[in-house]
Amino acid sequence: MGIEVNDKDIVVPGELLATGMDYVPAQGTYRIGEEIRSKKLGLVTVDGRAIKLIPLSGRYLPKRGDTIIGRVEDIAMSGWRLSINSPYSAMLSMKDATSEFIARGADLTRYYELEDYIVAKIINVTSQKLVDVTMKGPGLRKLSAGRIIEVNTNKVPRIIGKQGSMVSMVKTRTNTNIIVGQNGLVWIKGNDPKSELLAIETIRLIEKEAHLPGLTDRIAKHLGGGAAPEVRAEENMAGEDDGLQ
């Protein structure tokens, strides 16, 4: 009876995590009879009596409040449909598109065209996974020149870092502008291709080593320019304490 794995072990779907009734299955795990098993490929965390999983793989599932980068894939009568790197697409309706007034029957391509990338915020996700987004809000805008890469959505919290500390360090030390969408799309713009390349390589490195300790110092070393700046709370995998998801 008891726990069968160690904290921060990597487990696969179906793997036995604990036996007996002492533990409670939390996010990413399930109980079957006397056993608690894993539902996903991820990192086990034991939090008191709760056993939960931080997923290592899997596509983005839209959540209200997330800031994402979407690509316009269709223009409908009253809005734009966006592809958001998820099994589900999102709708941006005319009323949420801009602080300007858009008349009925206006040419919507004046605002956002096919293939445009935009930074938007998810305002609603229905039970049937219909997603609504808005462009009204600070920092929400159409993206212009730059490069777009796709990262593992589960690594986004690590790429952003506590209070944005990781991505800030990358931005400052590579002299680039970076916007990280919760859905795994990342926009990068630098003054020259070399600095963009360094930023992208660094992000890929963070992605690869996200689950290992001491990452911030290794990234600081990789970028050069001295030790990483101090962050107040302890580093951890998902940034659970900093409100980022």
């Binding site: 696969v12 779907p13 179906g14 399930y30 079957i32 098993r37 539902k39 996903k40």
Partner: peptide
């Protein structure tokens, strides 16, 4: 996924 599947 509640488990993986193996086949033979």
């Amino acid at each position: 996924m509640k488990d993986m599947v193996a086949a033979v």
